[in-house]
Computed example of a mutant assay.
Amino acid sequence: MTNRVLLNNVDHADLRAIVGYGPRFGDNVNQALLLPTEFEEAQREYPILLRKDPQGDYQAVALLGLDRDENLFLDGGEWRARYVPAVQQRGPFSIALQDAKDGGAPRPMIHVDLDHPRVSTSEGLPLFLPAGGNAPYLQHMIGVLGAIYDGLEVAKPMFAAFSELDLIEPVAIAIELVDGATYDLPDFHTIAADRLAALSGGDLERLHHSGLLRAAQWLVSSMGNVQQLVEMKNRRLVMARAGEGLATP
């Protein structure tokens, strides 16, 4: 359940947001939704894979772990990566369309979930300055929410363009760890690198001018991070074994 209300500096002058990451904030997930506006930064850290949502539409996700509820980037209260997916950054904040009082088009407005575990009046970073202006943390969140809002607008036409050019293909990811455990990650898709490289003429020009050529290239390049994820998982296993050895009488 949520208790989502329109954020304002009168009713919520004393609100604060608890920073940091961890299971209490819902960060123990092995996948996080990604939007096209994040691909450039996210592809440096995570494998970006495509999957279909319950309606059959494609969406992009950052692969964060191999097991259920496993986020290999979590370490204590920190997220060990140069970029954190926007849906995990946003915490209690969201954008919803609000009807304009003058009868104009609805406007996107920031809402806050007052029941979210990050929301506090006694700890964390303030949302508003004493005089009522936005504090730096809220300014940052406005940027995060803007990236989400813009990304949602871009995602559907982007996947439509990729599908029209037959660039999306299933990908088989088979992993073996140092302890002999194996993983087969099903139902994922990626961009076919060979088909992307073979584009020419009008198709290539349209993809380039729309900015989607770079998005496709970032999706392809991100697949190199699968091996990094495997190495992170192996390090966890080795450390766990070492800890068990130290605990043995």
Rank of each mutant, 00 (worst) to 15 (best):
I142Q: 15
K101D: 10
P92N: 09
V112E: 02
G146V: 02
Q98Y: 03
E153G: 11
L127C: 00
P157Q: 11
I148T: 03
L129S: 13
G103T: 06
V119G: 00
A131S: 13
G104R: 08
M158R: 11
P126H: 05
L129M: 15
Q139G: 08
Q89M: 11
T121P: 00
D150G: 04
Q89C: 09
P92S: 07
D115M: 11
F128H: 00
I142L: 09
R90H: 00
H140M: 11
A135T: 03
H140Q: 13
D150F: 04
G151E: 08
E123T: 10
D113Q: 14
G103R: 12
Q98K: 11
R90D: 00
Y149W: 05
H116C: 05
D115S: 15
D99N: 14
Q139V: 05
P117N: 10
Q98H: 07
I95A: 01
M158P: 02
P157K: 13
G143Q: 15
L138P: 00
P106D: 12
S94K: 04
D113N: 15
V144W: 11
D115R: 14
A131W: 08
I142D: 04
M109E: 15
I148D: 01
R107P: 02
I110E: 03
G124C: 08
G103D: 09
Q98L: 11
P136K: 13
F159C: 08
G132W: 11
Q139F: 00
H116E: 06
P136L: 11
A135Q: 08
P92G: 05
A155Q: 13
T121W: 00
A96N: 05
G151P: 03
E153I: 05
D150L: 13
L138S: 02
S122Q: 13
M158H: 06
Q139W: 04
G124A: 11
A131F: 06
S122V: 08
A100Y: 04
V119K: 03
G91M: 04
P117M: 11
A160K: 12
V119L: 08
G143K: 14
L129T: 14
V119W: 01
E123V: 07
A96C: 02
K156H: 08
G124W: 04
H111D: 06
D102W: 07
V154K: 13
L127N: 00
D115L: 12
I110W: 02
M141D: 01
I110T: 09
L152T: 07
A147D: 15
